[in-house]
Design a protein around this nucleic acid. Structure first.
Length: 306
DNA sequence: AATCGTTCCTGATAGC
DNA sequence: TGCTATCAGGAACGAT
């Protein structure tokens, strides 16, 4: 399940590779995933040039510049991968990927094309009619479970409001002081708070489990009863596990892959996530799986105290 | 305002 | 082996 480290890994790759490309076509066999509608997205974004790829929480945000003659306009194309979404950068002739629901065809503008293909062999044999024969690419949106979505926002204020609905970013504005305040604001289980995107951006089930284990905190503990020193430990633990997730290129537990289909490696370094029945690497007790807030939760009953 | 239940969807898995 | 029923899960949404 793509969380902050997974989405950020993809963001860095997309930002590097897609910048400067223009969208020349959009295809889908699942229009339901488009908001407000496939027709609108298709009509508006074709011709748009990708200026940058941003991230907020688990959202990937393509900043597009529409080449309207009088006044070029910026719009935002947002992807949420939810549980099984993948964004793959491919060549049109590359082998098919499983569960592809939508394909965005990308073409390099002349300037970009000369620059990036100077030393490459031109692909003159492409049979794809949309291809310009040079530097054409595809951004494939695959999603086995179909929970993911593509959302177009054309209004700057609407974009601002959307971003404001998310909690602070762990590596930007989440400081110990506001983290402590956030914990005090609710009586729900601490793990539920960590997963709440309105409270804190980017944490999902994997990193919530591992951070709570690292901090030695029971995931069921009432958030507002977490002590000051525990909050301090949890704050550090969150940053540590997210950083490790990033370092290993994300966790390819089931579906997650990076932008070129490679797997991440954080799954080889899980602390408790998915380790039901195994021994706690800190105290040797048996890791248990329980359900907290409707989510599978892994923890060590011996060293994660209430 | 905070919280909770329901819903979306289908691959993987357990049970027979 | 092959079939069927059940489960998992982020977060939007409506209800309380």
């Amino acid at each position: 399940m793509p969380e902050l480290p997974e989405v950020e890994t993809i963001r860095r790759q997309l930002d590097k590779e897609l910048k400067g490309y223009a969208i020349s076509a959009v295809q889908t066999d699942f229009t339901k995933s488009f908001r407000p509608s496939f027709e609108t997205v298709d009509r508006v974004i074709v011709g748009g040039v990708i200026k940058a790829v941003d991230r907020q929480a688990k959202l990937l945000i393509l900043r597009l510049l529409l080449p309207v003659k009088e006044s070029p306009r910026q719009v935002y194309l947002i992807f949420h991968l939810k549980l099984t979404g993948q964004l793959l950068v491919r060549k049109p002739k590359d082998p098919a990927d499983k569960y592809v629901r939508s394909v965005f065809t990308l073409v390099a503008p002349p300037g970009k094309l000369r620059e990036s293909n100077r030393s490459k062999i031109p692909d003159l044999n492409s049979s794809d009619p949309r291809s310009n024969g040079l530097g054409s690419m595809e951004l494939r949106f695959a999603d086995a479970r179909k929970f993911g979505y593509v959302k177009l926002i054309t209004d700057k204020k609407e974009m601002g409001d959307l971003l404001k609905s998310y909690g602070p970013e762990p590596f930007k504005d989440l400081k110990l002081k506001n983290f402590t305040q956030i914990l005090k604001s609710s009586a729900r289980p601490i793990k539920t708070i960590l997963l709440d995107q309105e409270k804190i951006s980017g944490i999902g089930n994997i990193y919530a489990n591992d951070a709570l284990w690292l901090a030695g905190l029971d995931p069921r503990r009432a958030s507002h009863k977490v002590t000051k020193s525990q909050a301090g430990r949890l704050y550090k633990a969150i940053l540590v596990v997210l950083k490790r997730g990033l370092k290993y290129g994300g966790a390819s537990d089931q579906w997650y892959v990076q932008a070129h289909g490679e797997k991440g490696k954080y799954q080889e370094h899980f602390l408790v996530y998915g380790k039901n029945g195994e021994k706690c690497q800190r105290c040797g007790a048996e890791i248990k799986r329980i359900v907290v807030g409707g989510r599978g939760t892994f923890y060590c009953p011996a060293c994660q105290s209430l």
